[in-house]
Design a protein around this nucleic acid. Structure first.
Lengths: 315, 315
DNA sequence: TAGTTTTTATTGATAGTTTTTATTAAGTTT
DNA sequence: AAACTTAATAAAAACTATCAATAAAAACTA
C-alpha cells in the first residue's frame, strides 16, 4: 500500500470516473486503474462498484476512502513541518473569498501580502460561502474569507474584523428624517438584506434571528450584490443595510441617504476560515497577520463607530 | 515520500543505528540508508545527525518522526477496516502479561480463545507492567494484561475483573486468631506487598495510598513472585496479601493461614490495556469477549460469592 | 600512532514496479 | 446497428528499490 495509491483512490472517489480522476492526478487512466486494482488485490476487497454508472463506492470503500483522507492529510503535514522549520512561507495557497468581501478587503492586503511573502503563489477565487465550505472539505481550497459564524464542524474560524452595517434609507422611508437609527427601530418587514453574512454571535446585534427570509413582501431577493440592493432600495422597496466599507464609494447623492446606527451597531463578522485538519497553517497565519496589519494601520479605522466593535471583539 | 521510507525512519529513530534498523526492517543497510537519504533530499532537511554516536535526531527530525508515527499508524488502520468488514479476526496478536496474572488467567482463556479464533496467532510474553507500557508505545505489543489503573496518557484500559486479596497471616501474627480481617485493622508496617497492582480507583480499598515503600523495616522487597512473599511471611517477617486466585493452589497447611477480609475487601483491578491509537481493536475486543466469557460476568470486588464461577473453573 | 572493529555511504548489477501507448471489451447513446 | 464513452488489458519503456560487494569514515585498542 502506497500513499500514491491512496491518492488515486481519493481522486476516483471524488470524480466518480477513472479517466477524469487520472487527468487530475496527472497520470494516464491505465496507470490509475492498475494501481487501484493492485490496492484492491492487496486488501482483498473491492473499493469501487464499477458496474454502477457513475461509479459508486462499496461499503468498505467508503470507510477506506475516509481513512485514506486521514492518511493523505497527515502525510501532507510532513511538508508543513519542514516548511515551518525552515521558516519558509511559500508554495501555492488557494484562497476563496465571498463576493461581498472581495472588492473591499482584497485590495487592502494583496499588495502587502505578496511583498511580504514573495514565495507564495496566491490563487484567489471569488465564490460563495457554500462553495468555500465544500472546497475546503475537498482540499480544493486552503482557506477562505467569509462572514461567520458558520457553525460547521469541519471548519475552523479565525475572526479578522467586525464590519458595522450602515442603513441606506430611501427618501420616502419613515426613518429618513432620523440622524441615527437604533437597532430597536428596525422593522424587519421593510429591510432588504443579502443572505450573505448577517448572522452573528451573541455579542453583536443578531439580525438573522429576527429576519425571516420567507417574508410576505411578494418578492424574494436572490441577488448577490449590494448594487442591486441599493437600486431596489432607492426604488422605494424598503431600506437596506450596507457593510461600512461598501458605503465609501457611493456617490455624494447616495451618501445623503446613509444613516449610522447608535451603539450597539449591527455588524458582520469576517473571518479567515480553514479546514480543521489545519494544513498549511503557517500560510494561514501569515495571511491573518497581513490582514491584521492593514486593518490596524492602512485603513482609516480612526472612525469611532468602526473601532468600537473591533475593540470589543479583539482579545 | 512513501510509507516505506517513513517506516525506515521510525526504525532508525528507534534503534539509533542504521544497521540494526535495517535488520529489523528486513532489508540491507544500504537499502535503508538510501531510502532515508532520498527522503531527506526530497524534504531538503536532515532527519538524523549522523555525526553523533549513537545517531541522534535533528530538531526537525524529531517532529518528522512524531508525524511519521501518526501516518504509519493511520495506514495500518486500513487493514483493520478491511478485517472488520470481512468479519475476519486473525493475524498476529502480541500480548504482554504481568507475571502475577499469567499463571492464573492464561489457562482460563487460552483454550477458549484459540478455538474461537483459530486464525489468530497469539504471541504471549510474560513481562512487567513497565515493559508492557514501553512496548505498547513502541508498537511492539498489541495489548497487555496488567493491574490498573496505570494513569498513563498513551494507554487505554479495559477493566476485566476485580480480584480480592486474601490475608496470609503467620502464626505469630497479632491477627492470626481473627476469623476475618477488617481493612482498618491493617498495619501497613507489617505487610509484605509486591509493587505489582495494589493501587486502585476510589471504589476499592486503596492500599498504595497508605503503603510506604520506604518502610523502616530494615529490608526492601524486590521480589516479583508471591512464592517468595509467602516464604518470607511464614518466616515471621509479617503478614501478606495474596490475590484470591493464587490462594487456590496452596498446601492444606498453608491454607490454614488464610484469612478473608470483611467487605469492602481490598482487591486488584486487572485490565486489558492497549495503545490509545486503538489499532487491531477487533482483536482486542475478541480477547476481551473471550476472557469475559470465561469469567462469566464481571467479578465484583465487594461480593465473595460472585467469585464462585472463577473457583469452579480453577478447580 | 597504526591497526582493528564498527558503522555508514557508494557503486553497479538486477529484479521488480510503475507508467505509457495502443488496443480491446463492455456498456451507453444516438 | 453505428458512434461514442469508459474501464480493462497487453506489451514496451522508464524508472526504482534492492542487494552484494566495497569504500570511507569514525570509534576503539593496543
Amino acid at each position: 500500500m502506497t500513499i500514491t495509491q491512496l491518492k488515486y483512490v481519493l481522486s476516483v472517489a471524488e470524480y466518480k470516473n477513472f479517466t477524469i480522476a487520472a487527468e487530475h492526478s496527472f497520470v494516464t487512466q491505465p496507470t490509475l486503474s492498475m494501481q487501484i486494482q493492485k490496492l484492491e488485490d492487496h486488501l482483498g476487497v473491492l473499493i469501487f462498484n464499477r458496474s454502477k454508472k457513475p461509479i459508486e463506492l462499496t461499503d468498505v470503500g467508503l470507510k477506506i476512502v475516509e481513512q485514506a483522507k486521514v492518511i493523505v492529510n497527515e502525510s501532507n503535514r510532513i511538508v508543513d513541518i519542514v516548511h515551518q522549520h525552515k521558516g519558509f512561507v511559500g508554495g501555492e495557497f488557494k484562497l476563496g473569498i465571498i463576493p461581498t468581501v472581495m472588492p473591499t478587503l482584497l485590495p487592502m492586503f494583496l499588495n502587502n501580502f505578496t511583498k511580504k511573502y514573495p514565495k507564495v503563489k496566491l490563487i484567489i477565487e471569488e465564490i460563495t460561502t457554500e462553495e468555500i465550505i465544500k472546497k475546503l472539505s475537498d482540499n480544493h481550497l486552503d482557506a477562505g474569507l467569509a462572514a461567520t459564524p458558520l457553525e460547521n464542524e469541519m471548519i475552523k474560524e479565525m475572526p479578522l474584523y467586525y464590519e458595522p452595517f450602515v442603513g441606506l434609507i430611501p427618501k420616502e422611508h419613515r426613518l429618513f428624517h432620523k440622524k441615527e437609527i437604533e437597532s430597536s427601530e428596525l422593522e424587519m418587514e421593510d429591510i432588504l438584506l443579502l443572505e450573505d453574512g448577517h448572522c452573528f454571535k451573541d455579542s453583536v446585534i443578531n439580525l438573522c434571528r429576527t429576519y425571516n427570509t420567507d417574508n410576505n413582501r411578494g418578492f424574494k431577493l436572490e441577488s448577490g450584490s449590494f448594487d442591486t440592493l441599493i437600486k431596489l432600495s432607492k426604488e422605494g422597496l424598503g431600506m437596506t443595510l450596507l457593510p461600512y466599507l461598501h458605503t465609501l464609494d457611493l456617490s455624494e447623492i447616495d451618501k445623503k441617504l446613509l444613516r449610522d446606527f447608535t451603539s450597539p451597531q449591527p455588524a458582520r463578522e469576517i473571518s479567515l476560515i480553514y479546514h480543521k485538519s489545519q494544513l498549511k497553517m503557517q500560510l494561514v497565519e501569515a495571511l491573518k497577520n497581513s490582514i491584521d496589519g492593514v486593518i490596524r494601520g492602512a485603513i482609516s479605522f480612526s472612525d469611532v463607530k468602526i473601532i468600537s466593535p473591533l475593540q470589543k471583539k479583539a482579545n
